[in-house]
Nucleic acid binder design. Structure first.
Lengths: 344, 344
DNA sequence: GTGAAAGCGCTAACAT
DNA sequence: ATGTTAGCGCTTTCAC
């Protein structure tokens, strides 16, 4: 397949009448090599077209310089921003990323972990799938002490670090905003409560209601997979109620957007009849009419910081104490929740 | 970092009083090992928790079983579908994917190619960045005979295969559809004509006009990077004309959608005043109002077939003749171009 | 059908 | 500051 003879450090050594070890050292800027020799090594390496053999180097060092990344799905603006941040940091530090999508399935996630383990990733960054219930599938990694960083959809684990936003506060802020727009019966379109992001947003919603003396009503909480279909379904279900709600806080923009489309189709006015807010600041939030109130997430930073954290762990240059990093978010208010009569 | 002693084939060999070579053969189902022995090897391997050392194996075989994938960007429904198809096929064949986004920059693309070359990918699948002008950056791969498969945004090269849809026909069909809706002055919002996908769509547009005896007008062709911003800009520019067009064919959904938003903001009625069609069938095409007429792309299949093609090339089990694979697309007609008065 | 032996190219401990 | 040496764990001739 590949063409025959690659240039090795031995070729360079022979050429210069020095030993392979010196070449090896020179190539990686080891302090115990004279400047002069180093220069010669570098120049003959270039002249001969030398290219380091990653296999051999990896074999010796027992490191692949490869980091696994598992995301629920790739087709989201947020995720791709995160990845681009990770890539930047990882590449700068000499690491490659192996990226895979769990497609929101715990089973696929588990099989990806195995694959990544088999291909000997040095570390793993993971945002859990929608229905992952435990971390058993990560045990093979724990056993080998392969460091893991959770981001966004995290899970507490004594040995792992995680990078998140404060979903509780964000959920609180969204709900409070809706309340200030005059909403009294606010539906929460939530995701699975086993995922921190959705549970925290839900708790924030509950707390905001409580703090504003609005009684909580379990019937107003609709849990789904937050897909477009679920958004539509939820909208239909709501329209079947005798007593329509006057606000909806959806845990992602996708479901909020499809709910809006469906509600409008039935003649419901947004935000006059029902004020709506989403979560994520997906580009689609600026296409839907009316434009969607949402929460902005620092995706790129989340990626950069996750990668930094993991790489530090790989270099053991990190306090064991560090457990969780929280980034800041921001509420973006748009027409879908702004009531004309409102003076706040 | 990693815990000390891994189980090797030597451990298994010792345990069974056979040689490491036999173990190696047994593990990979070599025909020259007795069934009985093979079974024993497998079972002790499992018992001891053996896990093949990829470095050593790669070093011997001079293969990483890793395939590089370069895409312009990850945050698109289409791209993520393609990747998921690639992953499925690649993993089944025992390959890992290293995925990277060029961010539409030729320079970034070039540096990614270098990185991937350095990490010794066995092959590469690439969809070219917006402004890649030549294939020089791929030369290091050509020199080492590392097989390359282009997909979607391709480039003719005698040594490479490519997987595409018939963008010319699709462009023709979209334009013809607009003409049949009564459009006579159709703007084309195109991408860089150095990229096959955009050039072909443009040529299809030209041909459809010609076939329906509509004179071509260069002023109606607006070339841009097809970003949201460009869509808005184009819309504004169009509205400055004395003579408004009655149709727009945009080369992607993104720019079509932002153009629609901008046009509507100025009170222009879609499709009555201007009928609009996009390209890609991005989910946003079903959110914008009116829903966008577009062309559907078989993303997953494109990914699967690209991976298949590359893997066949890696196994040399492929005719050298095969050069290009064309998948079928379909025109999806929605409200943004459907004129009520139309009876077709 | 199985084993012995020779590396793949690089690195690091040790010696000088 | 440089060289010697001994592998890393696996695969693959080549013998038998």
């Amino acid at each position: 397949m590949k063409s025959g003879k690659d240039v090795t450090i031995y070729d360079i050594a022979r050429e210069l009448n020095i030993s392979a070890s010196t070449v090896s050292r020179g190539l990686k800027n080891h302090p115990h090599v004279r400047k002069e020799v180093k220069k010669k090594i570098l120049s003959t390496a270039r002249r001969l077209g030398y290219q380091k053999n990653k296999f051999a180097s990896d074999l010796r060092q027992k490191r692949t310089h490869t980091i696994g990344v598992i995301v629920p799905r790739l087709d989201s603006y947020f995720v791709s921003t995160v990845i681009s941040g990770m890539e930047k940091v990882a590449n700068k530090a000499g690491y490659n990323l192996i990226i895979s999508q769990s497609q929101e399935s715990a089973q696929k996630e588990s099989s990806i972990v195995t694959t990544m383990f088999n291909s000997q990733v040095d570390g793993l960054m993971i945002s859990l799938s929608y229905n992952t219930r435990n971390l058993d599938h990560l045990n093979i990694l724990f056993r080998k002490k392969i460091p893991i960083v959770f981001f966004d959809r995290v899970c507490d684990h004594p040995k792992c670090k995680s990078v998140v936003i404060n979903n509780y506060r964000a959920g609180y802020e969204v709900t409070e905003h809706l309340i200030k727009q005059g909403c009294k019966r606010i539906v929460h379109l939530g995701g699975s409560l086993i995922r921190n992001v959705y549970n925290d947003r839900y708790q924030g919603y509950r707390q905001a209601l409580a703090d504003h003396n609005i009684p909580h009503d379990d019937k107003l909480v609709i849990i789904s997979d937050l897909s477009n279909q679920s958004g539509r379904d939820a909208a239909r279900r709501i329209m079947g109620w005798k007593n329509l709600p006057d606000g909806i806080f959806a845990a992602n923009d996708n479901s909020a957007v499809s709910a809006i489309c469906e509600l409008k189709r039935s003649g419901i006015k947004i935000p006059e009849d029902i004020a709506i807010a989403g979560f994520n600041n997906d580009p689609v939030s600026r296409v839907v009419e009316p434009n969607l109130t949402t929460v902005h997430y620092p995706g790129r930073e989340m990626g950069e910081i996750s990668a930094d954290t993991l790489i530090n762990a790989l270099n053991q240059s990190q306090s064991e104490i560090l457990n969780s990093i929280v980034l800041s978010h921001s509420l973006i208010i748009r027409e879908s929740s702004r009531r004309k009569s409102n003076h706040v």
